[in-house]
């Protein structure tokens, strides 16, 4: 395929993905908006007002970056895992497999589809947060780049989950038992400096901590961890997960007999 044909194919997958999550907006865009509004009201306003400052900011200001990042993580992951698994389940993956699109274009298309939903939800949650607090962005480049890279990383994670999934139960196991606990323990609601040394050490093993803190650094200018190290780790994980995903597509794991 020529480069223009490759771009048409890539863009077709992206628009198909965007069309899907906007068509079912009541399942994809509305729930995180409601959930995050509740978080802002309950944790930010009601409980937060009694907590006082965290990292030099009031509690609402402190948790907003974490909650935006949490929305981006869960939605970019959830979009790819549910969309690609549905494509397998309904067998319309065959439309892709018979076509001449290279595997890397298929993967990039699904990843950017996941990123689109992650960013769309992140944007909605950011707008909602403005009803509760003034959001001053300390470093726009870091804010935008980290949210994009995080969405890419979790879209890849969702893709791998979908490849291995054999039932709709399988696509909810990882988000429920791994993603949600890691997100809650990844410094969304608290600074790890509040933890004893041992648990601080354990928290440093949680990759989501790096993303949440780097994003918080981009907005508030404060972080529990080294931002440069966080970027390195995220890029490394993206390379690893992209390679694994591409290998799975090439081998036909879960999609070809």
């Amino acid at each position: 395929m020529t480069s223009s044909q490759l771009f048409v194919a890539f863009w077709t997958i992206v628009t198909k993905e965007v069309r899907r999550f906007t068509r079912i907006w009541g399942q994809t865009l509305l729930p995180p908006a409601i959930t995050m509004t509740l978080y802002f009201i309950i944790f930010g306003n009601l409980i937060g007002s009694r907590i006082g400052e965290m990292g030099g900011f009031n509690y609402m200001e402190y948790i907003v970056p974490g909650l935006i990042m949490m929305s981006v993580i869960t939605n970019s992951y959830g979009n790819v895992v549910s969309s690609f698994y549905s494509t397998k389940f309904q067998r319309n993956i065959e439309e892709l497999l018979v076509s001449p699109i290279p595997h890397w274009v298929i993967l990039c298309g699904y990843v950017i589809g996941g990123v689109s939903r992650g960013l769309a939800v992140g944007f909605i949650v950011t707008l909602l947060s403005l009803f509760f607090t003034d959001l001053q962005i300390s470093n726009i480049a870091i804010t935008v780049s980290i949210v994009f890279l995080t969405a890419v990383l979790f879209s890849l994670g969702g893709f791998i989950n979908a490849v291995f999934a054999n039932s709709f139960d399988d696509i909810s196991i990882v988000p429920t038992f791994i993603l949600t606990p890691l997100t809650y323990l990844g410094g969304v609601f608290y600074s790890i400096s509040l933890l004893p040394d041992f648990w601080q050490g354990v928290s440093m093993l949680n990759p989501i901590l790096y993303m949440v803190n780097t994003f918080r650094y981009g907005i508030l200018g404060v972080s529990d961890i080294n931002v440069g190290f966080a970027y390195s780790m995220i890029l490394l994980f993206i390379v690893i997960l992209f390679s694994v995903s591409l290998h799975l597509l090439k081998s036909g794991k879960g999609i070809r007999s």
Binding site: K16, N92, E95, L96, S99
Partner: peptide
């Protein structure tokens, strides 16, 4: 093996896109 929730025209246009048309 098409997506039952898609419109007829979208199914055909999407397939065309997969071929770079």
């Amino acid at each position: 093996n098409f997506n039952m929730f898609e419109k007829v025209i979208d199914i055909v246009l999407t397939q065309a896109g997969y071929y770079g048309i």
